[in-house]
Design a protein around this nucleic acid. Structure first.
Lengths: 208, 208, 208, 208
DNA sequence: TATGAATGAGTATTCATTCAT
DNA sequence: CATGAATGAATACTCATTCAT
């Protein structure tokens, strides 16, 4: 979107618009995290946001669009958080550990975000297994894991495992964390993150 | 009424009843596997079964009852399948590998069953993370994994990892398989199972 | 059961039929008295009777027919009970008192019968106020009251009140008893009957 | 938002809302009065109102809420009507007569209101005789009758009858009026009211 | 922009009734 | 005679979406 397309009152409209959208997305996150995706309706989101239901329809093309934006928003924030945390370790092994711990750290830092999105992603499979909301949204994460694995295998740090299999196992283990946390708020995510890092380090590294 | 009449009557009745219940459970499985749990209604299940919606209410106390029976049916079948496949290996390591490969083999053998139940279980989280349909249904599997891990650690085959963490990672990796298969029917579950077994073997075994 | 017994022995058939009908009517009474008319379904009646729902349809033309028979049965029994109790007093005043006390005595003797029928009668008004089930069923009672009043007025025992008005007030006061008793089982119907008799005696008698 | 804007906004909103609620309550009254409570569904009420059934759910929490509002609305209106009509007579006897005649006058003035509510109240008894919709709604009337009786007995105007018995008889006689009127529109409620007043005056007053 | 009233399709569930066995 | 499986209409209620204001 070019700024001149924003047209007449660019700044004002887009500021208001961005604020409203962000507010609605936040309320959607809270509502889903609290009630579960299946129990969440636009009316409840609107109520939490203190606006009328029409506002949501005004700013989003529909429920699916809102949900897709929720997912995109959380994934984007998560990626940024994780990228900063991971930094640029020298080895693939270090990177993988850092990636796992950073992923869990994001969940610990924003449990509602994570819970909402996992709720959506896991609930929202549709015809023939496709994800319902923007299947591309997790691509960056999948690509990141793939790159780490390829790097490690290329460098001889990692053994010759099937990357897709590892990727699935890792993503699922990460995505389970919000559910576990929601089910038992006393779960220590630090421990979970460290244990997971150790687990996947051993699973991937070359025999000594 | 003579006893053989009685019993044949009962046999006939319970045969029809069992057949109808099985048919409806099957159709529920198919529908959920195809459309996803959230998109599945009793009307759609009934339509697939070629009966009126009233029939479902006639044989099941309600939607939750039907879903619970679907889950119970699939889990029970899965447990039996896995128990036979696993047999009684001599070591915990062997048992863990066998358990993982048997679990994936069940999914390969009954992909719709597995897809439906995973869909239900993952979609059906309620307000505070609790599972909606008979949370006890997965207990047997959780217990089995826990016992294998405790056995291996006791015998010194396994290192001192956190059993809950491993259990979560393993269950999630297994439960992801139906989704992956649904998303891409060309996925080779044999490979997935073997890779997973190797992955978790390395993750759990004591350093050589 | 052989067909010649079946066909030739009408007594047998009508005995079975009468027994079944009586059994179903009884169970309908119990169910309505316990659950209320609106909460009563044929399935519940059948369940209480230990028969299948088809049996009810077999012996009664439909739900309305069954309900009408329930009402008729209870009214008939009540009339007989009351007729015996009232006997043949010498004066209209005595007869009115006896009628009131006998009516309440019947309710005390068969609270379920009375509760069920009052539930039906009061719930079952339909378009434009007509009673839904056999409006003629209460005619005998209405006629009886009318005759007593006419007698009393003719003989100069009663003052010149409006007979329809008194009849309504009296019937309603009698029919309220089962409800009161159901709402509070400790209600003393003896007292209620005597008080009502005194009340209507004073309301009808000629000034001394 | 300035207060007058606020109030005009609220006024506008609550005007539409109040109007719709009133319209729906009216249609519910008409439907119940015409078809009877048991035959009344939200769909029929909505159809009469010319709106979709969703509108009723929009303005009322559910069927029970709507019915409760119907009852409350009619009872409130009735109480106000009766209070004005009765005024403040000097004696308990006069008050009782006035109360009875005013009660019947209200029914004559708003026959549909009265018919609907009586239909609801009489149909809506649940399992153990309790009233289904806001049992407290008739308390004011019961209290009023009780107070009049206590007053009259204290002052020596009334004889020593059982107040609960009289109260029941009186309320039932009043509540029967809408049914009688519905069954036969030619009934002269003026006569009915005067006759009832005379009847209960004689039933309660002390012997001369 | 924002409202909130209104819609209409969709939800699970209940029930009187029918009918092959 | 009796069963109980099956129907199909009706029930209250929910919700995403639209639209006049």
């Amino acid at each position: 979107m070019r700024s001149n397309l924003q047209s007449s009152d660019q700044g004002g409209r887009s500021f208001i618009e961005a604020a409203r959208r962000a507010q609605i997305i936040d309320c959607a996150v809270e509502t889903i995290a609290e009630l579960g995706f299946a129990q969440t309706s636009l009316a409840k989101i609107a109520k939490r946001a203190g606006v009328s239901t029409g506002v949501i329809s005004y700013y989003f093309a529909g429920k699916d669009d809102l949900i897709a934006e929720v997912v995109a928003h959380v994934f984007t924030a998560g990626e940024a958080f994780i990228r900063v945390r991971v930094g640029e370790p020298a080895t693939a092994r270090e990177t993988l550990r850092a990636f796992i711990e950073a992923s869990i750290a994001y969940i610990a830092a924003h449990p509602h975000n994570a819970a909402a999105v996992m709720n959506i992603v896991r609930a929202g499979r549709t015809e023939h297994g496709g994800q319902r909301f923007d299947p591309a949204v997790g691509d960056a994460r999948r690509d990141a894991i793939t790159r780490i694995c390829e790097w490690g295998q290329r460098e001889g740090e990692f053994r010759a495992f099937s990357i897709p299999t590892l990727r699935i196992a890792l993503i699922e283990a990460l995505d389970a964390a919000p559910c576990e946390l929601a089910a038992d708020p006393d779960v220590d995510l630090d421990v979970y993150g460290r244990e997971l890092a150790e687990l996947f380090d051993r699973a991937t590294r070359k025999d000594p």
